[in-house]
Design a binder for these strands. Structure first.
Lengths: 252, 252
DNA sequence: TTAATAGTTTCTTATTTAGAAATTATTGTA
DNA sequence: TACAATAATTTCTAAATAAGAAACTATTAA
């Protein structure tokens, strides 16, 4: 890491500290941070002060604990707004949610990962661990597999070279050839299935949003496995394809 | 600035660069940034690379332009979730929006500014310039004035010492005594009025969410001035107070 | 009251930064 | 296609910053 990036050492440390705060579910103390990162207390303290000065972090003066600053609300809002695919697909995905009564996800690819852009939960939705802004692997998720299925052979090869197919559930595809066969099927049927490959108990069907070889994103229907009978799956596919067509019409 | 903070020079520059990107409405080039900030191109370039490495920034390899990274979606989501006041008030504020058919805002105080936490737009809402995560002055906004009205005299004095009452519209209160009188009235009537003091054409009524001397935030009803007749104002106050009471009941 | 723990300051060397200048790439134009 | 203009990138080194050990102070727990 340090041999590649030789500039902004404080920035890299600040990122580590910020991530530590983000990943904690409560405000954290200086000690918490120094216990968990390989940076000494004086250095962390100085960085925290600068982060606080910038508004990236808040220090509760009573508990002396640090939490994320509201600056990120502004930044996050801005990023969300920059993806107009989100606004564009909203009404169709809402319709899809109401028809299926299951959770609908919208995602894009970034650095060979699926980034969750939007999530529409149904009244009977089971809490998924995913949250907006979170990332998923391509090889294990329904949206990811629709993207991979549309990669050029070269791009796919490169992806597979840089990715180890780590098992996330007993069903995760960890064999390259099996994955390739699966992607071939995705291309043929024009949707991808995540048969509890990415997250325990969760079954997904994914659809790509591609027009004139521009990939705008993908969406998926998520449901607890036990609810997805053959009949339900057929409905998911039917409604999903309908939504896909409608969205493609308004794209561009 | 530099005489106070002597640590994290790169961090401070990174903040400037990030803010420049946030405030631009399109992706920006290295030149754009260097033209607008007092930092030289080589330095900006090196910082951008580190920011990109961290995921804070994306570089479009075709246009060579930079935009905000999706990491901020995750951070922003996390910050939003940390304020459960947002979840708690949602249903009541939705009801209030439907009753008034105007935009409802939810805010908190941070560093003597109002941070907009949530915004519920009505069907006939005029586009306000405010967006979630954005900040407003305390002295000119309805929410801000409800907060100020509940400051201790010492805190208010300190606030006034550190704040210059800059005029944002012809109606902005720029005189300390006038503001103090206004705050006294806020305390008496238990709501604050922003009579086009913060933003052209926009009239607001603000209500504080305070219980057992804990201030949880404030909300306001925003409408274009021309729609706020005496009759409408009375409705705003009536419905606003009702919402305030209902929310206070579920707080804590 | 004391012990233990956490937060903060000071200080110095090793490391990093910053920008001028040169270089290379890219874009627009004749 | 070549040329000019503009933008991006690299190199280099003096000047500025960072990092952590050690000492110190505040806070908490016993």
């Amino acid at each position: 890491m340090a041999d590649q990036i030789f500039y902004g050492t404080v920035l890299l440390k600040a990122k580590q500290i910020t991530d530590y705060i983000v990943d904690s579910n409560t405000a954290v103390s200086l000690k918490d941070i120094s216990d968990n990162l390989a940076i000494t207390k004086p250095t962390i303290l100085k960085i925290l002060r600068t982060l606080e000065y910038c508004g990236f972090v808040n220090r509760n003066s009573e508990t002396q604990k640090y939490s994320l600053g509201t600056v990120y609300l502004r930044y996050g809002q801005k990023v969300a707004e920059s993806f107009d695919i989100k606004e564009l697909t909203r009404p169709f995905l809402e319709q899809l949610r109401d028809k299926t009564n299951e959770t609908i996800n919208l995602g894009i690819v970034e650095k060979n990962k699926v980034v969750l852009l939007d999530k529409l939960e149904s009244s009977r939705s089971v809490k998924l661990v995913s949250r907006v802004g979170g990332t998923m692997h391509m090889y294990s998720s329904a949206m990811g597999k629709t993207f991979l299925a549309h990669y050029t052979p070269e791009k796919l090869t490169k992806y597979l070279e840089n990715t180890s197919l780590v098992s996330l559930t007993p069903n995760t595809i960890t064999d390259v050839q099996t994955l390739k066969d699966d992607l071939e099927q995705v291309r043929q049927q024009n949707f991808a299935i995540d048969n509890v490959e990415n997250q325990a108990d969760i079954f997904c069907v994914g659809f790509i949003l591609e027009k004139n070889s521009n990939c705008y994103g993908a969406f998926s229907i998520s449901a607890p496995e036990y609810r997805v009978t053959k009949k339900v799956l057929h409905e998911f596919i039917k409604y999903g394809k309908e939504a896909q067509l409608k969205i493609l019409e308004v794209l561009n």
